[in-house]
Design a protein around this nucleic acid. Structure first.
Lengths: 171, 171
DNA sequence: CTTGGAAAGTCAACAAGGCTGACATAAGAT
DNA sequence: ATCTTATGTCAGCCTTGTTGACTTTCCAAG
């Protein structure tokens, strides 16, 4: 199976990869179809609770960086504050997220998951991790390392910074 | 760099991968951020033409499988026919897609890109392939193979079938 | 102390692209 | 010949993204 990477030529220490349009197209389609699988399980759970992906993203990153400000979340998610606000308001009203007014700067709202917010986060990430774990197991450790490398290379540099920042603090 | 895959133990021919929640979470976030990069370039081009991602998807798969029926496209894209129809209608009206009535079964419409449709497809896929190519180059051939393996393992089985089917005919 | 500007939130209006329901027409089945 | 199914269309609703205008709160600099 797999047409793999086509050819590699070493030339003065610089490796050249010859990639056909067809191979790249397959990669693009793989990305498209895999993303559908990636979101499928959380989507099902969210629907039961009357939420959408926007809520999931907010919950995920609040869990990941508790006490984050709205503005920080905004730059991670890459949406407008009006858009985020609508989602956040629903989560606060439903008691999944707590927005504490900053003590240093009272304009800021620091966001935390409540107990039930954490419970939903757990449920969502359990489902998503399970799919990820299965895929990782099926593909093997070498493939996983490659997977991560390609994904990181695919990010916009600015977004890559967010990603790396989450990693540092998250370990 | 990278925490890579944690540990592998060979045990009676079956390899066990020990994956921490943290590692899996990183994979999830990588997927999220990378997908943003993945769609960023086409999104910019589409906006200039007044189209969205839905149009891109339709154009992509019509290019990929010329003469495909609406129903077939439906099952690939995983949306309702009403949703697809809106997009398709716009593309036909704008002269990017031609919908020919089937001669065997006149209920069916077979879809083809017109010349200008193919031109837009080219523009979009050039941009997306360029990002893909850069990521592939940066990560190297081994990583690319792993990338593809993990993505394929992440797909829903039913969707995976679509993916494989496109590959067969597409080469 | 006043004022300028940043952070946060609100309201309104709009667009894209999902969805369901109702319906027309063509094919195939009884 | 008529009933049923497949296919595609039209209309309307919902979520979630957008922009723009505006208020409130607060910090900080003049």
């Amino acid at each position: 199976m797999a047409q793999g990477a086509s050819a590699v030529a070493q030339k003065g220490g610089e490796s050249l990869l010859f990639l056909t349009d067809e191979q790249l197209r397959k990669g693009i389609e793989a990305m498209f179809f895999a993303y559908r699988g990636f979101t499928a399980d959380p989507d099902r759970i969210l629907e039961e609770h009357g939420y959408g992906r926007a809520h999931h993203r907010a919950i995920h990153f609040i869990h990941r960086a508790p006490g984050t400000t709205v503005n920080n979340l905004l730059s991670i998610l890459g949406v407008t504050k009006q858009s985020l606000n609508r989602v956040l308001r629903a989560l606060v009203e439903d008691g999944l997220v707590e927005a504490r007014v900053g003590h240093r700067d009272k304009r800021e709202r620091h966001l935390y998951l409540t107990e039930s917010g954490a419970a939903l986060e757990q449920q969502l990430s359990d489902a998503q991790r399970e799919r990820m774990r299965a895929a990782y197991r099926a593909a093997g450790p070498v493939a996983v390392a490659g997977f991560r490398q390609v994904l990181e290379a695919m990010m916009d540099p600015e977004i890559r910074r967010h990603f790396d920042r989450l990693t540092e603090s998250g370990r």
